[in-house]
Structure formats: structure tokens, C-alpha cells
Amino acid sequence: MKNVMFVCKHNSRRSQMAEGFARTLGEGKITVTSSGLAINEVDPIAVKVMSEVGIDISQQSSKPLDNFNPEDYDIVISLCGCGVNLPEAWVIREVFEDWQLDDPAGGSLEIFRQVRDQVKERVIKLIASLICHSNPT
């Protein structure tokens, strides 16, 4: 089972959504954590838009990247373009991607929903690619 780290600047919106989707859609296939370069409260609007699609992230919390060891993760995904600011040990994992999704902070509910849907689409593709690589035909 692959260990996935989603990282974002504040670990309050995009990375929290990715963690929620990956926990739900990747259950039994991957383990997942999210963290940030800095920490903040999980955005209540992110919690709301995730609940609209049946995923509860209300108990998730913002965690600093410094609390984790990069060697414990196979896959590191930056959601905000912060990959350029990550220590090298994080970007040389088996898989590193920088999705560079827009920050919905300060936006309308519709903006949050658009970002949520983009995150979901990317997480689905990530999980599918991991399954294909672990079960070659």
C-alpha cells in the first residue's frame, strides 16, 4: 500500500479536500496524510463543500510538514505550487506532482465547489494510476 502526502501552503483547504477524497476513494488502496508549510484552521467552507458530496472532513486538522519524515511517503502531491519551496527530500520521493490548483480562499461557494471538483478529479486519476501500476495486466 502506498503512503501519500498532500501538501499545501496552509493545509486548510485544497490539501484537506484531497485528504478527504483520498481517504474515502482510496480506502484499502492507499494511506493518506496532509500537511502544510505553515498551519491554519481547516476552512469551514471547505468542510461545507465536502459535506455536500458526502465526505466529512470536520475532524481533520492542519498539520505542519515538519512533523513528518519524507522517507515515510512514496507519493508527495503539492496542490498549490509550493513544490518549489519544499525541502529536496520531499520532491525526490517515488512520485512527486505539483497540481497548482487555484486557492479558493475568499471566493464564493461556487469557487470552492469548482476547486473541490478539480481536486476530486485529480485524486481519482492518482488512485487509478496507482492501481494500474500495482496490478499490471
Score class of each variant (00 low, 15 high):
Val42Asp: 02
Gly107Met: 08
Arg93Ala: 14
Asp102Gln: 13
Ser12Phe: 01
Ser61Asp: 02
Ser62Leu: 04
Leu109Trp: 03
Asp98Cys: 08
Leu37Lys: 03
Pro44Tyr: 05
Val42Tyr: 03
Val49Trp: 00
Ile92Asn: 14
Asn40Phe: 09
Val95Tyr: 06
Asn3Pro: 04
Ala89Asp: 13
Pro87Tyr: 09
Arg93Phe: 01
Arg93Trp: 02
Ser34Tyr: 10
Asp103Phe: 04
Pro87Trp: 09
Glu88Ala: 10
Leu65Tyr: 08
Trp99Pro: 05
Glu27Pro: 02
Gln16Tyr: 04
Glu97Phe: 02
Ala38Pro: 00
Phe68Thr: 04
Lys48Thr: 13
Ile77Ala: 01
Lys2Phe: 12
Asp98Tyr: 11
Leu101Tyr: 06
Asp72His: 13
Ser61Thr: 14
Ser62Val: 04
Lys48Pro: 01
Met50Gly: 04
Leu101Ile: 13
Lys48Gly: 02
Ser58Met: 08
Gly107Leu: 09
Ile77Glu: 00
Glu97Tyr: 04
Thr24Leu: 10
Gly54Pro: 11
Trp90Pro: 00
Val42Arg: 01
Glu110Val: 12
Val47Asp: 02
Ala18Lys: 10
Asp102Cys: 01
Ser61Phe: 03
Gly26Asn: 09
Ser78Thr: 11
Lys2Asp: 07
Pro104Gln: 04
Lys9Met: 15
Gly107Phe: 06
Glu71Trp: 03
Ser34Lys: 11
Gln100Glu: 15
Phe21Lys: 11
Leu65Cys: 06
Leu109Ala: 09
Ala18Thr: 10
Ser108Cys: 10
Ile77Gly: 00
Phe21Leu: 07
Met50Lys: 08
Ser61Val: 12
Gly20Phe: 05
Val53Asp: 03
Asp72Arg: 07
Pro87Leu: 11
Asp102Lys: 13
Val42His: 02
Ser34Glu: 07
Glu41Tyr: 10
Gly107Asn: 10
Arg14Leu: 08
